[in-house]
Design a protein around this nucleic acid. Structure first.
Length: 566
RNA sequence: GCACCUGUAGCUCAGUUGGAUUAGAGCACCGGUCUACGAAACCGGGGGCCGUAGGUUCGAAUCCUACCAGGUGCGCCA
C-alpha cells in the first residue's frame, strides 16, 4: 500500500471541499521528527493562488479531512504546513497483515530495453550499468504488476561482423577454438585498420551477409552463438533476468527498414541532403537556423542505427506497449531525443503514452579517468567479476569465518557480485561514478554487505528463538521510539517502489533499504527481543520478520541475494 | 560554434521535484559501548560560503540569467 498516496487522497479531498479545486497537497515525508511523520506542503501554494491566508486554509482543510483510521493528529505549523502524525494502530495493522505491496489492477505494458551489448566482442565494464540498472527497473515493474517485456537489442549486424567472419576464414578459426573473443576481435580490427585489401573483403562480406548468402550466414550464426554464450554466462553470474526470449537483435529489424523509410517519405518527413536521406525537425533547429539532421539512409543506400531504432519503435507499438524505456549510456541522449521526436511525427508511436530514455553516466577509475586496463584497453566483465569474488573471499578469510571452504566460496560469490551491483545501483544513474573496491566491499555504510549482514542477523534471531519466521503472526505494538521508527519505514516500501517505477532511479530503493537496515540496527541495539516479556517478544519478532522480508524482496528486486549467515 | 550533463565535508556519495533558525550519510580522524538475541554493530565529536556572482519569493543546494571548471555529443560508426 502506498501510504503517501493514501494520505494525499484524503487531504486533497478536503482541499476540494474547501476550495472547490483539485490541487496537489504535496505530501512529503517529514524531515524532522518534531514535524510529525508526513507533512503537507501544498497549502501555501494553493492559498497564494487564491489570495487567502495559508494558515486559515490549513485550518479549514484539517477540519474537513476524514482521518480517524490512519492519522493521529493534523496540526498547522509554521507559515502553513500541515504536520501529519500517523496512528500507531494504522501501521501495526498494516504490518500484521503483511502484504506491503499491492499490484496494479489495470495493468499496462512496458517494453524495457537494456544491456544490449555488441556481439562482436565480449561484454566489458561499459555494459555493466545498463545491464544492472535496467534489470532492477524491469524487476520492480514486474513486482508492481506491470506487463513487462524485456528487449535485449544486441548488436549483431554491420561492418564489424563482415570483418570478423572474413577473419575467421583467413585464420581458419572454428567455433571450438574461438574461446577468446576479445583477442580475436582485436586482431581482426587491427588487420581491418592496417590491411586495405582485407578491409575491402570484409566490406564485401557485409554485403553477402545482408543479401543472405548461405555460407556467410552460417559462419555469422556460428559466431553469434559463441558470443551469445559468453553473454549468457555473464548474465548467469550477475543474476540478470535476461533470457534468450528477450533477444531482439539488430538484424531482426532488417526487413522492416525499407518500410520505415517509405513511411517517413509518405509523411513528407524525408529530405535529401548531401546525398543522404534525412529527417529535419523544427525542434532541432538552432536559433541561427542550423538544422540538425537525423540521417536514416546513407548516400550509398545503407541504413543506420537511427533507422533500426525507428523500426524498433514500430515493433514496440505492435507489441502493445503503453510505455517504452531505454537504458543506455548518456552519450546517446541526443540520438534518442531525435528518434522519439521523429517516431512521434511519423505516427510510429500512436498508442505509446510514454517514451523514456533513462541514461547512465560513465564508470571511472579512482583517478577520475575512464576505467581501463593498464594498457588502455577495455576491462572484460568476466575479469571484473572474478576479481570481485576473489576480493570478497579474501575479506571473509581475514574475518576468520567459521564456515567451510565451499560455504565460503559460495558466500564470496554472493558478496562480491552483490557489492559490484549495489555500488552501481546505489548511485544516481545520471552521474559518472568512481569505481572503488574498498568502498563497495565495506561492511559499513550504504553497501551490499551491510544489508546482507543486517539480514543475516535477523535470521540468527529466528534460529536462536527456534521459530519459523513465516509462521509468525499476532499483534504488533511499537512502544519504543526505535521500533516505531522502524515500523514507519517498513510501510514506505511501496511508496519507494512506485517512485522508482515512475522515474527510473533504483538508487531510491537503495537509500531506502540502507535506511531500513540502519533503523533495524538501532532497534536491535536498543531493545531486547528474546528476553522481553511474551507480548513484546511476539511483537518484536514479527517486526524482525517484516524487516527481513522487505530486505529480502528489496534486495532481490535489485538482483542481489541475501544470506542466511555470513 | 551550438547543445546536453556534472560541480555539495579531505575522499566516495545522498538530498524525494521550492520547504521548517542547525544541508545529511559512509570512509578517514578523535573518543566511548561486548562475562555477547552476530562488535561485520551501535553511540558521541570535530569537519561545509552547496563552483562564483546576481535575480525570482513568505522560503533556494534545488528555479532563472551570466560567468568559471570538468565531461560528453553534434551528416553518412553503433
Amino acid at each position: 500500500m502506498n501510504v503517501k498516496s493514501l494520505i494525499a487522497e484524503r487531504i486533497e479531498l478536503a482541499i476540494y471541499s474547501v476550495t472547490g479545486q483539485h490541487s496537489s497537497a504535496d505530501i512529503q515525508l517529514s524531515t524532522k521528527s518534531e514535524h510529525g511523520d508526513y507533512q503537507a506542503n501544498g497549502i501555501m501554494r494553493i492559498a497564494k493562488a487564491l489570495k487567502i491566508k495559508p494558515r486559515e486554509l490549513a485550518e479549514q482543510v484539517i477540519a474537513q479531512t476524514e482521518y480517524g483510521d490512519i492519522v493521529e493528529s493534523l496540526v498547522v505549523a509554521g507559515p502553513g504546513f500541515i504536520n501529519i502524525e500517523l496512528k500507531n494502530s494504522f501501521f501495526s495493522e498494516l504490518l500484521e497483515k503483511g502484504n506491503l505491496i499491492k499490484k496494479r489492477e489495470k495493468t499496462k505494458t512496458v517494453v524495457i530495453d537494456y544491456s544490449s551489448p555488441n556481439l562482436a566482442k565480449e561484454m566489458h565494464v561499459g555494459h555493466l550499468r545498463s545491464t544492472i540498472i535496467g534489470d532492477a527497473i524491469a524487476r520492480i515493474l514486474d513486482c508492481l504488476g506491470y506487463n513487462v517485456i524485456r528487449q535485449n537489442h544486441v548488436g549483431d549486424w554491420g561492418t564489424q561482423f563482415g570483418m570478423l567472419i572474413e577473419n575467421m576464414e583467413h585464420e581458419n578459426f572454428s567455433s571450438e577454438n574461438l574461446a577468446d573473443l576479445e583477442t580475436f576481435y582485436r586482431s581482426s580490427k587491427k588487420k581491418f585498420d592496417e590491411d586495405p585489401e582485407f578491409a575491402q573483403q570484409a566490406r564485401a562480406r557485409v554485403v553477402s551477409l545482408q543479401s543472405g548468402d548461405q555460407l556467410t550466414r552460417n559462419q555469422w550464426l556460428r559466431f553469434i552463438n559463441i558470443s551469445l554464450s559468453h553473454c549468457r554466462e555473464i548474465y548467469e553470474r550477475l543474476g540478470v533476468s535476461l533470457s534468450d526470449e528477450d533477444l531482439a537483435p539488430e538484424s531482426s529489424y532488417n526487413a522492416l527498414l525499407p518500410t520505415v523509410i517509405e513511411a517517413l517519405n509518405k509523411r513528407g518527413l524525408l529530405e535529401e541532403s548531401e546525398g543522404a536521406q534525412c529527417v529535419f525537425l523544427e525542434e532541432f533547429t538552432s536559433s541561427e537556423g542550423d538544422r540538425q539532421p537525423l540521417i536514416v539512409r546513407k548516400s550509398d543506400g545503407g541504413y543506420l542505427y537511427a533507422t533500426t531504432d525507428l523500426a524498433a519503435i514500430l515493433h514496440r507499438e505492435n507489441l502493445g506497449a503503453d510505455r517504452i524505456i531505454y537504458i543506455t549510456d548518456a552519450r546517446q541522449k541526443l540520438h534518442f531525443k531525435q528518434v522519439f521526436a521523429v517516431a512521434k511525427q511519423a505516427g510510429f508511436a500512436k498508442k505509446i503514452e510514454q517514451m523514456n530514455h533513462f541514461s547512465t553516466g560513465a564508470m571511472l577509475a579512482s583517478n577520475g579517468r575512464p576505467f581501463k586496463t593498464r594498457e588502455g584497453g577495455t576491462i572484460r566483465l568476466s575479469d571484473l567479476l572474478n576479481e570481485a569474488e576473489q576480493r570478497a573471499l579474501n575479506l571473509l578469510k581475514s574475518k576468520g569465518s567459521e564456515l567451510t571452504e565451499t560455504e565460503q566460496n559460495d558466500l564470496a560469490k554472493a558478496i562480491g557480485i552483490g557489492a559490484v551491483k549495489y555500488a552501481d545501483l546505489s548511485k544516481n544513474r545520471n552521474s559518472d561514478y568512481i569505481f572503488d573496491w574498498d568502498n563497495m566491499l565495506a561492511l559499513n555504510g550504504n553497501t551490499a554487505p551491510y544489508m546482507q549482514y543486517a539480514y543475516a542477523r535477523i535470521q540468527s534471531i529466528f534460529r536462536q528463538a527456534e521459530v519459523q519466521p513465516d509462521s509468525l503472526s499476532g499483534k504488533i505494538n511499537p512502544v519504543a521510539q526505535s521500533e516505531r521508527a522502524l515500523c514507519k519505514e517498513l510501510i514506505r516500501f511501496q511508496e519507494v517502489l512506485d517512485q522508482v517505477a515512475a522515474e527510473g532511479f533504483p538508487h531510491y530503493l537503495c537509500v531506502y533499504l540502507y535506511n531500513l537496515s540502519s533503523l533495524f540496527s538501532k532497534f536491535y541495539e536498543e531493545l531486547t527481543i528474546l528476553d522481553a516479556d511474551k507480548e513484546k517478544q511476539a511483537s518484536r519478532l514479527l517486526i524482525c520478520e517484516r524487516t527481513g522480508s522487505v530486505l529480502k524482496l528489496g534486495l532481490s528486486l535489485l538482483g542481489i541475494t541475501v544470506l542466511e549467515r555470513m
